[in-house]
Amino acid sequence: MSRLPEGRRMSALVKLDQVSLRHDRHLALNGVSLAVTPGRIVTVIGPNGAGKSTLVKVALGLLSPDSGSVVRRPGLVMGYVPQKLSVPDSFPLSVRRFLAMAAPRGDWQAALDRVSAGHVLGRQVSQLSGGELQRVMLARALLRQPDLLVLDEPVGGVDMAGQAEIYDLIAQEARQHHRGVLLVSHDLHVVMAATDEVVCLNGHVCCAGHPEAVAQHPEYLALFGPRVAASLAVYTHVHDHAHLADGTVEHVHGPQCQHGRECDHG
């Protein structure tokens, strides 16, 4: 992996270019572009139904886009934490075995300790609580020593103190081990501190850039509503974008807004 800043484009772990994907008639992703490079945390935010999980699956190669390109670095090792996991009760699987499936020779206890779930090693996966399972999945993804961590709402079901802890751990993994991180969240204020780039998604990329810039972006506000804005005093917004009653988007340029080339609402 390149350490040179100008080499970043070249060393992208995964790069999506103008990706569009249709579910039935519904355009789930519309001309989405983004890239994750080693050591960088890219956070995708957006409301329910914005296509966040679809985007994750395209990045992982689980879904093929209808148009646009997805390039993953050859030999890329990915660690994936899905939004939820439902292991059937009928499937006898201990946490130890679940971790061993991903990393046959890893130090499973240490991996669990890092996510504060050291006590569950001998338990059955189907009996874990939501938060415990989420921690175990993160430990499992990290055990693979991935180049790219793909995390779809990794703190779902985790208590507030635990959430901060987990985001700290993710940031540490990115910085110390140069792992690229593609993170999906609908909660910007917890992830903000560590995130290098925020992509605000609502089918298309509404805005993207440094968290401060995105937080000031009117479309971000429009998507998340005034209550979120009120809870985030640091964010000031300049509207550049209005959602019209018929569902179309009208664009008004604001400062610092970056658009994908596909944006036709200029």
């Binding site: 689980l62 994936y80 899905p82």
Partner: peptide
């Protein structure tokens, strides 16, 4: 066997790995 077990846990997770 290993692939089938991984799929039983989660097909997307197995494919991503």
């Amino acid at each position: 066997w290993p692939t089938l077990l991984a799929m039983t846990v989660d097909e997307d997770l197995a494919a991503a790995e």
